[in-house]
Amino acid sequence: MVAMIRIEGLSKSYGEVAVLRNCSLEVARGEVVVICGPSGSGKSTFVKCINGIEPIQAGRVVIDGDDLPSKPAAAARIRSRVGMVFQHFELYPHLTVMENVCLAQIHVLKRSRAEAEDKARSLLERVGLVDKEAAYPGQLSGGQQQRIAIVRALAMDPLAMLFDEPTSALDPEMIGEVLAVMLELAREGMTMVVVTHEMGFAKAAADRVVFMDRGEIVEVAETRRFFAEPSSERARLFLSRILAH
């Protein structure tokens, strides 16, 4: 079976500083992988390399059998099929919710406006925000904005979805509504790579957990095993600290 995402020997540095060292990971179709690790360990950078937002110095990224090419135009085509959700939502503040969800559908996938809006409405309906289509992001709560950011990514019919700490900028009472949408996506069989410290989500949705530290993938384990008996000392230490909270 072809992996949906295959990363081989990925290395990246900013100038002299090596941020990712020889990272390899395969994510199967429909699999949910949670990435955790201490601050500064390279989780965000790793996820940004998966869809080529950040250029890499060494290694390969293969999405659904296609090498992520170095040519910008070709890379953009593959990138459009990998959805990304950011910590700070990154909705476009000058556009309405509807325009946010339609922009890339129209300009990248070349859908007609009517087609794009139909798609947007059916997705907004699913997350319970269809009444917000004319609102601007600034008028919405953080939880609502993040659900719309998820819809914006889903509207592109992605092969896989990447999440970079999607709930860590949210007030506690809004975390649940975003996690609920993500859980539903996972149940529907979406391939997902999720950077998060929400260990509850990891236990409920993840097939495997990846532990990163200092730019390296230290451990990849099946979820239940990761929480029961992590094999590396560093992961054990990290878990005891994070679960103590």
Partner: peptide
């Protein structure tokens, strides 16, 4: 983050500047 969001959705550099 705004540049990254546009880039992640598959927009080209010039589309990102013009639209976002």
């Amino acid at each position: 983050g705004q540049w990254q969001a546009a880039k992640a959705s598959g927009m080209t550099y010039l589309q990102t500047i013009r639209l976002v």
